[in-house]
Measured scan of single mutants.
Amino acid sequence: MEVRTIKVFTTVDNINLHTQVVDMSMTYGQQFGPTYLDGADVTKIKPHNSHEGKTFYVLPNDDTLRVEAFEYYHTTDPSFLGRYMSALNHTKKWKYPQVNGLTSIKWADNNCYLATALLTLQQIELKFNPPALQDAYYRARAGEAANFCALILAYCNKTVGELGDVRETMSYLFQHANLDSCKRVLNVVCKTCGQQQTTLKGVEAVMYMGTLSYEQFKKGVQIPCTCGKQATKYLVQQESPFVMMSAPPAQYELKHGTFTCASEYTGNYQCGHYKHITSKETLYCIDGALLTKSSEYKGPITDVFYKENSYTTTIK
């Protein structure tokens, strides 16, 4: 009895394709271990004539594949690729409408935090270190965002349907971005203890939790000093293409032309909904596939993004 075979390709990165001759009487799992086709788990399936010449994702289970996976995804987590594939199996079914010149995501599976993050990423200057993220990001900007969303979920250790947080998501993504040249110098002034300067680099240099107003941050924000008295913390120097200011959701007025974009969060910790506000020729609110415009805006804002380049204080 002759062994019926077909020729397929296996890959971990969709760049390096490895030619395989597979036995049609055995499952993919018996031949390769966990195997995925377009995100779908085909591990328990036997090869079919229609699979001839198709590319299958496999887990990096030998040295060659491990090197290829690390170079593309910059992670050695053995569960990463499987999590990416199972997320992709959902995100490829989502709709990605162009809204006001940006790629958004039609609401499904509690994905409003991903839509808000995706919209924000198209408006701030950011370059990702893992080629996987950078490639998928370019495709997302062009309207094909399924891979990018699935990668975000995998890097953030999230599953489809789980509630997510924009600030946490951005923080994970910033860790995989090139923020080497970003720098922030802060000064804390206390009447009792004097003053202390701190220099922050990388992710810490672009994120701040405690106030939404970048102007206020430049002037000074009140913080408790270690001595128990009130101290003032203010920005001395900022070198970065953008800054992200966050605070627990509270009524906040966004003035046209003073910011790049913002995240609105309605609801409580267990259950809520994100919308995205962007400042173009007027203010726009993007909620999944829905767009509304207004000249002014007041609502429960939790993150505001500002364009920056270089700032030095005039406070002496």
Score class of each variant (00 low, 15 high):
Ala87Cys: 05
Cys182Gln: 08
Arg167Lys: 05
Thr260Gly: 03
Ile105Lys: 04
Val206Asn: 00
Thr169Pro: 06
Asn309Tyr: 06
Lys46Asp: 13
Gln30Ser: 13
Asn49Ser: 13
Ser240Ala: 04
Ser279Leu: 04
Tyr208Gly: 03
Trp94Gly: 06
Val189Glu: 14
Leu179Ala: 00
Gln270His: 12
Thr192Trp: 02
Val99Lys: 00
Gly194Tyr: 03
Cys182Lys: 00
Glu2Tyr: 10
Cys261Ile: 11
Leu126His: 06
Pro130Asn: 06
Thr64Ile: 14
Tyr284Lys: 00
Thr232Gly: 01
Tyr138Leu: 14
Leu200Asn: 06
Ser294Ala: 13
Ala250Tyr: 14
Thr120Tyr: 10
Lys44Phe: 12
Cys156Pro: 03
Leu114His: 03
Asp63Pro: 14
Gln197Asp: 07
Gln134Gly: 08
Ile315Ala: 15
Ala250Gly: 08
Ser295Pro: 12
Tyr137Ala: 08
Gln270Cys: 12
Lys316Asp: 15
Thr10Phe: 07
Gln216His: 10
Tyr311Asp: 14
Gln222Ala: 10
Glu215Cys: 03
Ser246Pro: 02
Asn147Gly: 10
Ala142Ile: 12
Glu71Ser: 10
His90Trp: 09
Ala40Asp: 14
Ala177Ile: 03
Gly53Asn: 14
Val206Thr: 02
Gly53Tyr: 11
Tyr311Arg: 00
Gln195Pro: 12
Val3Cys: 13
Arg167Gln: 06
Gln175Pro: 06
His18Ala: 11
Ile286Trp: 07
Lys7His: 13
Asp165Tyr: 01
Asn157Asp: 07
Gly143Arg: 03
Asn187Asp: 07
Leu186Asp: 03
Leu200Gln: 14
Phe259Ile: 02
Lys201Gln: 13
Leu283Cys: 02
Met26Trp: 01
Arg167Glu: 03
Asp180Lys: 13
Phe9Lys: 11
Gly257Asp: 07
Phe305Gln: 03
Tyr138Lys: 15
Gln20Thr: 10
Ala69Asp: 09
Thr313Gly: 09
Val58Phe: 15
Tyr36His: 10
Thr266Asn: 08
Ala108Thr: 15
Pro224Ser: 12
Thr27Gly: 08
Met85Gly: 06
His18Trp: 10
His273Gln: 07
Arg184Thr: 06
Ala140Lys: 03
Ala142Ser: 11
Pro78Ala: 11
Gly272Met: 00
Asn187His: 07
Glu162Asn: 03
Leu291Glu: 12
Gln196Ala: 10
Ile152Lys: 00
Ser294Glu: 13
Ser25Gln: 14
Leu126Glu: 03
Met170Glu: 05
Val12Gly: 09
Arg184Glu: 02
His74Arg: 13
Phe305Asn: 01
Val8Gln: 01
Leu59Ile: 13
Ser50Trp: 15
Val166Ile: 02
Ile6Met: 12
Lys44Glu: 14
Val58Lys: 09
Ala136Asp: 04
Cys112Phe: 05
Lys95Thr: 13
Ile223Ser: 13
